[in-house]
Measured scan of single mutants.
Amino acid sequence: TSQSKEFDPLGPLPPGWEKRTDSNGRVYFVNHNTRITQWEDPRSQGQLNE
C-alpha cells in the first residue's frame, strides 16, 4: 500500500495551507484563509531572521 502523503521533515503545514503541484510538476502552496498562492513553503518562512 502506498501512502498519499509523503513524509515531510518540516512537519505538517500550518492550518489552512495546502501543498499542490502544478502541471509542470512544480510544488506550490495555497493559503485557503487568504486565498493566496506562493512558491515558498510557509513552514520555512520566518526562520530566516532567527
Rank of each mutant, 00 (worst) to 15 (best):
T1E: 14
T1A: 02
S2G: 04
S2L: 05
S2A: 06
S2W: 02
S2P: 04
S2E: 05
S2Q: 04
Q3V: 09
Q3W: 02
S4Y: 10
S4Q: 05
S4E: 15
S4P: 05
S4H: 14
S4I: 03
S4F: 15
K5R: 02
K5V: 02
K5P: 05
K5S: 05
E6H: 02
E6C: 02
E6K: 09
E6W: 02
F7Y: 10
F7T: 13
F7M: 06
F7C: 06
F7G: 10
F7K: 09
D8R: 08
D8A: 07
D8V: 07
D8M: 04
P9I: 08
P9E: 11
P9A: 10
P9K: 02
P9T: 08
L10Y: 06
L10S: 15
G11N: 14
G11Q: 09
G11Y: 02
G11E: 05
P12C: 08
P12G: 09
P12H: 09
P12S: 10
P12L: 07
L13Q: 02
L13T: 02
L13D: 00
P14C: 04
P14Y: 07
P15A: 14
P15Q: 13
P15M: 11
P15R: 15
G16F: 10
G16C: 14
W17M: 02
W17E: 01
W17Y: 14
W17C: 02
W17I: 11
W17F: 10
W17P: 00
E18V: 10
E18R: 04
K19H: 04
K19S: 12
K19W: 05
R20E: 08
R20D: 07
R20C: 14
R20L: 09
R20V: 10
R20G: 13
R20I: 09
T21W: 13
T21H: 06
T21Y: 07
T21F: 03
D22R: 05
D22S: 15
D22E: 05
D22C: 11
D22T: 14
D22Q: 07
S23E: 10
S23Q: 11
S23C: 08
S23H: 02
S23F: 06
S23I: 04
N24D: 15
N24Y: 07
N24M: 08
N24E: 15
N24W: 07
G25V: 00
G25Q: 11
G25M: 08
G25P: 00
G25E: 09
G25F: 05
G25A: 09
R26Q: 14
R26G: 13
R26Y: 13
R26T: 14
R26N: 15
R26F: 12
R26I: 09
V27W: 08
V27H: 13
V27G: 11
Y28P: 01
Y28V: 06
Y28R: 05
Y28E: 08
Y28F: 08
Y28D: 04
F29M: 04
F29V: 01
F29I: 01
F29G: 01
F29T: 03
F29S: 02
F29A: 01
V30Q: 07
V30E: 06
V30H: 07
V30C: 14
V30W: 09
V30P: 00
V30L: 06
N31Q: 05
N31T: 00
N31I: 00
N31D: 07
N31W: 00
H32F: 06
H32W: 07
H32M: 12
H32Y: 09
H32V: 09
H32D: 14
N33C: 15
N33G: 10
N33Q: 05
N33W: 01
N33P: 12
N33S: 13
T34N: 05
T34R: 14
T34H: 10
R35D: 06
R35C: 11
R35T: 06
R35G: 10
R35F: 03
R35Q: 07
R35M: 08
R35S: 12
I36V: 10
I36P: 00
I36H: 07
T37N: 09
T37R: 04
T37V: 04
T37D: 04
T37W: 00
Q38S: 09
Q38L: 03
Q38F: 00
Q38W: 00
Q38H: 00
W39S: 10
W39D: 11
W39V: 06
W39M: 07
W39F: 15
E40P: 02
E40C: 13
E40Q: 12
E40A: 08
D41S: 03
D41A: 03
D41T: 03
D41Q: 07
D41F: 06
D41W: 03
P42G: 00
P42D: 00
P42K: 00
P42E: 01
R43T: 06
R43Y: 00
R43P: 03
R43A: 01
S44C: 13
S44E: 13
S44W: 06
Q45A: 06
Q45H: 06
G46W: 08
G46R: 11
G46M: 12
G46V: 12
G46H: 04
Q47T: 14
Q47C: 02
Q47N: 14
Q47R: 13
Q47H: 12
Q47G: 13
L48H: 04
L48N: 15
L48R: 08
L48T: 08
L48W: 10
L48M: 12
L48S: 12
N49S: 12
N49E: 04
N49C: 06
E50H: 07
E50K: 15
E50W: 08
E50A: 14
E50L: 15
